[in-house]
Amino acid sequence: MSESFINEAKQKFTTDLVFRAEDVPMRCDPPAEELEQTLHGLMQLNGYIIKSLEEIAGRGANAVTYRAGKKFGHEVAKYFEKKSDVEDALRELSYILHGQYTFEPWKPSDRDEYIVEENGSTFIYLVFHDCIVRQSCRRIGQEQGGPLCQTLCGYVVGAVEEITGRRGKLEIIHTGPNACLKKLILK
């Protein structure tokens, strides 16, 4: 039984294709069904790693993933233009997060301004629409707002800190199946 599988696998992975050093693949166009398998595999991998981490480290997992995300955010935004204006920084951030996360500034109807200055700090509410973290959580039935969401928070904070040069914080106010509300605070 196992021998036939080995033979089968060997046959499957044997080709007479010549791959020269200069042959750089110029296209990446596998059919959607193949891409889907890879995407779902990645979502499951991420989800289960974080789920296991939460089981092992308990509440400490949030701090670990937040720090990891923050470091990643700093690394990614390192080469981006520095902006002191919050709106410009958010535009830069949306460029960094493009294709993975989409967000928009948000305010309750009783508030006049999106960006609020209060006691030397600035805050703004952000509604995250598309989010790969949410998709990963929902793919494996994991609750939102846990360590994987903290990775995103750290990532955004790291990127914003790098762009603005100010210390930041991102609080999760609400998580939902279609959008999440977060509060970005800059000190």
């Binding site: 309750p108 998580t175 199946p177 279609n178």
Partner: peptide
């Protein structure tokens, strides 16, 4: 009572 404050998270829907 305050639909203008809805951000479309669809938690209520779910």
């Amino acid at each position: 009572v305050h639909p203008e404050n809805c951000m479309g998270c669809l938690s209520c829907h779910e």
